[in-house]
Design a binder for these strands. Structure first.
Length: 625
RNA sequence: GGAGGCGUGGUGUAGCCGGUCAAACAUACGUGCCUGUCACGCACGAGAUCGCGGGUUCAAAUCCCGUCGCCUCCGCCA
């Protein structure tokens, strides 16, 4: 017991710590009948005089020779244990042996500290525990990084030793926050009559959407389950079943590239309700988030949330998930250039394009190198070019100055709302792409110019997304949300006409919850009528037979009395991330994958044995690793 | 798939317009001293062939090429 065997064992190179730290004198004790009476972080002045038994980890040891202080830590916090020979010879000799992260039980007496010894930085700082007996329950190797609140250790190292990383209070607090948020969600939805029902994770691969994770099946060689990308179809079946109000906190799997706020497996709060329209979903969600924020963070959210259509969001913010914590909206300045002799812009206008503008307040004096960087960035975002106009006192500085007339410059200033001292960025081209470029520039500038207020939460409903979108790869129209999303009633009335002339303009009864520019939830009112579903399938280019093949079970179910229904699904991890104020989703997941999609802790994904492949009827083509 | 950034003792960094660098600093680690510390302090000690491979050169942590890993973003994510 208690060996401190280093990884290099066997190499012949013995690290000193592996020997000296164990010393012959160190004997581990069993827990026996010893039981904890208090948690470390809970002790207060009122506890002074009490005899206590604490259990925890030695976070720090301050050895003053004949006086040893120990910071004893458990999930509730840290308390100082003091030990000296005159108080207890046993405790003192044990304290001399202690090292970082040893596991100990401390029997002792809570004493009020002298005023000059109080540590105001600690909730337990007014007291300390005088050790009477110290039981060393386990030793510990020296941790590969510091177990302290602020770490700058490499994230992959943290992930490899995630159990140590989680020992840090910010991480423990995130885990607790998550637990409380999940509980709040369950409590709230349950109180409104929602039933939590589990749906399969192993299911059938569907052609739409993200790439599937695939599960080979021994009993059906050559066939595969897909891990569910969402419980979408099943929750709709539950509506047909008459469940009426359903929710689930479930895991979803999507095999796509990762991001700071995206993991290949993630948790969703999935909700569906029958005989409801948008307003019922909206108020449910506002109530749910309001309750959760209040219970977990003690913060009252302003409800109802503001609403904005997709079209408006793109026009004003260049994105379908605007961060409305700051202004800096996009302006259409096309008319300022009507009849311009600036060839590049004139060409765009002739083709029916637009000119969009973004005002960077007070940035007219931006150095040329930075302005050039902005132009490059805009190109990186897909713009053909970026016209920068620096409105200085009495002059306008711009690389395109000689192509532009004074009146054009005045009109741009007027239409964009720019004032002297501002830098105006203009992009010419197709309407939506221009807005999207400027939308990204807006976020970049908002961040670098410090325009985004910290600590504020700006919720927003974005509604009426397009029903269809064009797939860039295939050039075909696809469902933007999923193929069971209802069109808005007005557009359904003239559905045939729109399907012929302007498919992209058909609006869906779909909606997102956006918080500070992050998509938190997404949902829709579904199609429950066969005739409507057929129309949508038709515009998607699916005939009866193809639709049957893909979604047959759902379509069949819908023939047995599907109620009108709709719902929404939250990205739980993102929700918690926002509540915790974390930078990445990984900070609120106990055991996340790194951004390359591997689990550093278990070294998964990994190869499997030849025999297992054999059994599954699989052959691997890539060179073995 | 694309762009950018990073990779040096356990950890975090410096060095990186080539030589005096078998590499500095902090911290962690070990030993000793220390009775009021709380990031304790002081002293001493151990610890890295600078991600990997190749090239240029009299000489490479440093320059070049390739490669691997990681992080962020774009594409992608109904």
């Amino acid at each position: 017991m208690g060996e401190r065997i280093e990884q290099s064992s066997g190499s012949g190179k013995i690290k000193r710590s592996s020997e000296l730290r164990t010393e012959t004198r160190l004997e581990l004790e069993d827990l026996g009948d010893l039981r904890r009476t208090h948690y470390c972080g809970e002790l207060r002045v009122e506890d002074a005089g009490k005899s206590v038994v604490l259990m925890g980890w030695v976070r720090r040891r301050r050895d003053l020779g004949e006086l040893i202080f120990i910071d004893l830590a458990d999930r509730t916090g840290i308390v100082q244990v003091v030990s000296s020979r005159d108080r207890s010879a046993q405790a003192f000799s044990a304290a001399e042996l202690l090292r970082s992260e040893y596991v100990v039980a401390v029997e002792g007496k809570v004493t009020k500290r002298l005023p000059e010894n109080v540590n105001p930085a600690l909730p337990t700082g007014e007291i300390e525990v005088e050790a009477v007996r110290i039981h060393i329950l386990n030793t510990a190797k020296t941790p590969p990084f510091y177990i302290q609140d602020n770490t700058d250790a490499d994230e992959n190292l943290r992930l490899k030793y995630r159990y140590l990383d989680l020992r840090r209070y910010p991480m423990l607090r995130n885990l607790e926050l998550r637990h409380r948020a999940v509980k709040a969600v369950r409590d709230y939805l349950s109180s409104l009559g929602f039933w939590e029902i589990e749906t399969p994770m192993m299911t059938r691969s569907t052609p739409e959407g993200a790439r599937d994770y695939v599960v080979p099946v021994r009993t059906a060689p050559g066939k595969f389950f897909a891990l569910a990308q969402s419980p979408q179809l099943f929750k709709q079946l539950l509506m047909v079943a008459g469940v009426d109000k359903y929710f689930q906190i479930n895991r979803c799997f999507r095999d796509e590239d990762l991001r700071a706020d995206r993991q290949p497996e993630f948790t969703q709060i999935d909700i569906e309700m029958s005989f409801a329209g948008e307003e019922e979903v909206f108020s449910l969600v506002e109530g749910l988030l309001g309750y959760t924020w209040k219970t977990v963070l003690g913060v009252t959210l302003p409800v109802p949330f503001p609403r904005m259509t997709y079209r408006e969001a793109v026009a004003r913010y260049g994105t379908d998930k605007p961060d409305i914590r700051f202004g800096m909206e996009i302006h259409d300045v096309t008319e300022a250039f009507r009849g311009t002799s600036f060839k590049v812009v004139a060409d765009v206008l002739r083709r029916g394009g637009r000119v969009k503008a973004l005002v960077a307040p007070g940035q007219a004096g931006m150095p040329r190198s930075q302005v050039d960087a902005l132009v490059e960035r805009a190109k990186g975002y897909g713009a053909k070019g970026l016209i920068t106009l620096a409105y200085l006192d009495g002059e306008v500085r711009s690389p395109a100055r000689k192509f532009l007339s004074d009146s054009e410059l005045d009109r741009v200033r007027e239409m964009s709302g720019a004032v002297t001292g501002d830098l105006v960025l203009c992009v010419a081209g197709e309407d939506v792409p221009c807005c999207e470029v400027l939308g990204k520039m807006r976020l970049d500038l908002g961040r670098t110019l410090g325009m985004i207020p910290r600590g504020s939460s700006a919720f927003l409903w974005v509604t009426e997304f397009p029903l269809l979108k064009i797939n860039e790869d295939t050039g075909e129209w696809e469902a933007a949300h999923h193929p069971f999303t209802s069109p808005v009633p007005e557009d359904l009335e003239r559905f045939e006409e729109l399907a012929r002339t302007d498919r992209g303009a058909i609006r869906a009864r779909s909606y997102d919850v956006v918080l500070n520019g992050v998509e938190l939830a997404s949902g829709s009112i579904r199609i429950h009528r066969r005739d409507v579903q057929e129309k949508v399938f038709r515009v998607l280019g699916l005939n009866e037979e193809e639709a049957r093949k893909r979604f047959g079970f759902l379509l069949e179910a819908f023939e047995y009395g599907a109620p009108p229904h709709g719902g929404i699904a939250f990205g739980m991890d993102r929700l918690i991330m926002m509540m915790a104020g974390a930078e990445t989703i990984r900070e609120v997941i106990a055991f996340p994958k790194n951004s390359s999609g591997t689990c550093v802790l278990t070294d998964a994904p990994a190869s499997i044995d030849r025999e297992k492949l054999e059994e599954l009827g699989l052959e691997v083509k890539v060179p073995h690793s």
